[in-house]
Each structure stands twice: as C-alpha cells, then as structure tokens.
Nucleic acid binder design. Structure first.
Lengths: 171, 171
DNA sequence: GTTTTTGGTTCGTTCACCAGACCACGTGCG
DNA sequence: CGCACGTGGTCTGGTGAACGAACCAAAAAC
C-alpha cells in the first residue's frame, strides 16, 4: 500500500503482506491472473483500470516475484508464479467473505476438479475434505452472478466453466 | 479502497470485500481489534496512524457493522463485532502469507486454547485438526519477533500470551 | 508502405493521506 | 471554584498517488 511511511515500522506480518499486495487493484489483478488473464489489454478491459496504474502494478508484481513476464508472439504475457499460489487461500478467503456481504446467492462457484465437490468458504472441498491447490480448482458463475454489468471479452469467457490458471481462450 | 470509481462496476465479491476493508489501515485496525485493542488512543499509538484517518476508518467500520462503538467510563470503546469474526480467516491467511515473505521464523504464533495445538497457515489446529474460531485462539510473540522496533503500551501488552478478543490490560 | 494492435508514457486534475494545530468535553486536583 | 489534563476527536495546508485522456514507439497485419 504504497508503503507510505509507517508500515515498515510495524513488526507485523500483516503489514508486510499489505506492503506487497495491499495497494489498490493489486489483489484484483492477481485474482484475474488466477482466473487465466494473461495480457495487458485483457487486465485493462476486465478491470477498467488506468493504463498507467496497471503498468505500475504489473511491474511491481513481477518485481515481487508474484507474476512472471514472458514475450509471446507479438505481445507480452503475465502469469502468476508458483510463489503466488501461496496467496490463493488469502484471496479466496477474502472473496468468500465478500460473497457474504450481500444477501444474494454466490456470484461465482469453485469446485474441486478431482472430485467435483464444491469448495466451502474455508477452502475445503465439501466432498472429499481436502484443501485443493488453485490448479485443482474449476470455477463457474454462480446463481448470484449478474451477466449484465460487464461485457468485455474476459467476462464473457468466464461465463463457462474454467480451470484456474489455464489461460483464457480469448481472440 | 475508497470505492473510487470502478469497483462498483465489478460483478465480483473480491471487489465488494475490498470496498469495505481494502483501504489503507483498515485491515490493520481490524487485526488490532482481534488482538484486544479497544480505544482510539491505543489504535493510534500502536499503528502510528494519523488521527484524521483513524477517525474516518473507525466510523466506516462501525457503519459497516464490523466494529461496535460503546461509551465506557470517560471514553469510547470499539470492539470487533460477531459479524467481523467471519473476516478472521482472511486476515489470518494474509498474515500467514506475510510471515512467509521473509526468511525469519514467525513473528507471532497462534495456538488453539482448547488443546494447546499450534495453528497452521491454513487455520487448522495441528493437534486436533479443527479450525478454531478467533475467540478460541491464544497468541504470543514468535521467535522472529523483534521487540526493539516498537515500544508502545499495546506492543508491550502483546509480549505476553493473550486470548484473542479479550481487551488488553492497559493502564 | 500504411494501418492496426499492443503496451505502454506523459500530462493536468482530482482525491486521499499526511503531520500538526486546534478544540470540546469530562475528570481530577488544589 | 478554577484550571490543567486526558480523551477523542476536527481542521488545514501540503504532498503524493490515482484518474482519464492524449500521445507514442515497435511490431504485426494487410
């Protein structure tokens, strides 16, 4: 969070974590990365984020080792790294808490690919009891999703069932 | 996060969550609440946060139903609500991820009060396998804690073993 | 060889955060 | 009673970050 002034003086791991992922947009960018977004223009279209800020955040996340940049044919790609996988439980927990904020049914469901069980808010598969890694999860829109609010290519691609971390089939 | 412009246009629970707890300082204030901090001046001393921002954050958290304000003898108190308890897994997950950012051993340990087992990064008690609620946790400084960085009353009180949510014995 | 796509940078404005000054209210104390 | 002090703020001016819009360079497409 801009590590403004005082976070550094906290002897606290939460403050350390927030120095890395606490800035505006950072967690949303990483979540999109888990959902399979890879390209600058796709992050931009899906998040409605200013290019300048997106550029800065991507650079910071690469610097922090949470995204890996690669040059593909004609463009760059940013993929979440192995190291970022450890952050998934925190992102998932926060997302599930966000689901609870409204009365609506869940906007997005996560299921354990191996056994098909739904993943509970604590990250555990309700069918087999395990806590699946992000690569073992599939996601699809839940009954509370509202397909009318957004109509970018990423949002459309996410209306089908997708395996986490798999690049989205865009263009 | 100031719900600046575009978070509202996201059909996404993570964005909803960040609208409530994504602003700078908010999660640190809530964590302090779980640790037993209750009074304006104690939050202020422990976090080195500007009074204006602390005032705004406390009001927003009361508004969101995550803190409850009460008038005690000669002062006000802010206690984390039942509703905020649901946020503990997310705070804990982020904290544990922050621990992993450095090579040092953990700065703070969490133990299951009922059975004495250590709580793993996924929130589960390593002894009994349950996921204890915050009220069933005890915390104490870990081997990686650095008692020299801060010397306010809250930091001193947190050097002993404490039950979460219990008000800190200050003054 | 011109246009389009991609991934940016630059610019001026707006807005949040900052430290520090100030303040209203209640309590304690001489 | 009168005044300092503790508590929990608000107000102000300055600074830095985020914003939208415009511009741009390299590479690919046509």
């Amino acid at each position: 969070m801009a590590l403004g002034v005082d976070y550094a003086r906290q002897d606290c791991s939460l403050a350390r974590a927030l120095e890395v992922v606490g800035e505006r947009w950072t967690l949303l960018i990483l979540r999109d990365g888990f959902l399979g977004v890879r390209r600058f223009s796709d992050f931009e279209a899906h998040l409605d984020i200013s290019k300048a800020v997106l550029s800065a955040r991507l650079a910071a996340l690469v610097e922090a080792g949470l995204l890996a940049r690669s040059e593909a044919a004609g463009h760059r790609e940013y993929a979440v790294t192995e190291r970022a996988h450890d952050l998934w439980p925190a992102i998932f927990a926060l997302t599930q808490w966000g689901e609870g904020l409204s009365e609506r049914p869940p906007r997005r469901l996560f299921e354990h690919a191996d056994c098909g069980g739904r993943v509970a808010p604590d990250g555990r598969c309700t069918a087999c009891g395990l806590v699946p890694a992000p690569a073992d999860l599939e996601t699809r829109p839940g009954p509370g999703a509202d397909p009318t609010v957004r109509d970018d290519a990423v949002s459309r691609a996410l209306r089908t069932r997708r395996r986490l971390l798999d690049p989205l089939p865009l263009r």
